[in-house]
Design a protein around this nucleic acid. Structure first.
Ligand SMILES: [Zn+2]
Ligand SMILES: [Zn+2]
Ligand SMILES: [Zn+2]
Ligand SMILES: [Zn+2]
Lengths: 136, 136
DNA sequence: CTGTGCGGGTTATAGTATTACATAACGCCT
DNA sequence: AGGCGTTATGTAATACTATAACCCGCACAG
């Protein structure tokens, strides 16, 4: 059960990804754990965290730090660096391309002698739906 | 004890800021709490969190989400939006200007109808000192 | 004075994440 | 097929981070 890139997409990992995909938005590790354990997988936090770490590590999901949560990648398979737009009302998470932002950031940081490896870019605000339904 | 902008810089708050300034880098809320309580302030988490919230709210400190920690602002008093360069070895935190990045991000998000309010831009990597001392 | 608001103290509890260890499954080589 | 090293899964226990709820006292306005 090893794919072309050497990834082991085991049952827990696959199910975890499915759970993320079923939801438009982000889920906390413990919510995921509930669903996993309901499906017959383990009941302890490491079960969820390990699967999530794997997915994040391999570009199939992203960690949303502001929410202490995880979301399925919306452009999996492509090398990309993402930024996230998080709605403060409904918690919806949109993923937008951040390759350009990242390049700028690398340039700025290089000027200070910093060797940049990973970026995490998140923004908080209102999604179109919530702007619509929550006027002045 | 109210400053020009209506800020109440009380003893706990001032001391909290001093504690952050004493350290080059970020401190967790509980580390700060230890020091505060050693100085005769309260011993319970809300003491630290409230002071930190105040400092962050008023632009005197920043929250570093990747570290679950806080750092004194390196350009206080100026309206600014910052990005943070976090060393994964020594946890040093450098603050760089992100106004331009933010503008780009606002433009991208506006294209999707998202109303962006706050940004959090963090990068992980190696600081100059650690590059020096930890070669191949 | 005296009511009101804010800050700060407390207890308790909620929520998030990791360490450590034991067992099972897999990939690979003979 | 059999054996072995590696990776994955499961468990218990614990560490770490953050918030809720309540009370009191002081500063200040009236
Ligand atoms: Zn993605
Ligand atoms: Zn929304
Ligand atoms: Zn700053
Ligand atoms: Zn460093």
């Amino acid at each position: 059960m090893i794919d072309a890139r050497g990834l082991r997409m085991t049952p827990v990992r696959r199910r975890t990804l499915e759970i993320l995909l079923e939801r438009h938005g982000a889920l906390g590790a413990y919510e995921i754990l509930e669903r996993l354990s309901a499906d017959g997988f383990g009941h302890q936090p490491p079960v969820a965290y390990r699967a999530l770490d794997f997915l994040v590590e391999n570009g199939l999901a992203h960690r949303i730090r502001r929410l202490n949560a995880f979301a399925a990648c919306q452009h999996p398979g492509q090398e990309h660096h993402a930024a996230f737009l998080i709605c403060r009302l409904c918690n919806a998470v949109a993923e937008i391309a951040a390759d350009k932002l990242r390049a700028t950031l690398i340039a700025s940081s290089a000027a200070t002698g910093f060797d940049l490896e990973r970026t995490s870019i998140e923004a908080l605000g209102l999604c179109p739906a919530c702007i619509e339904s929550a006027p002045a």
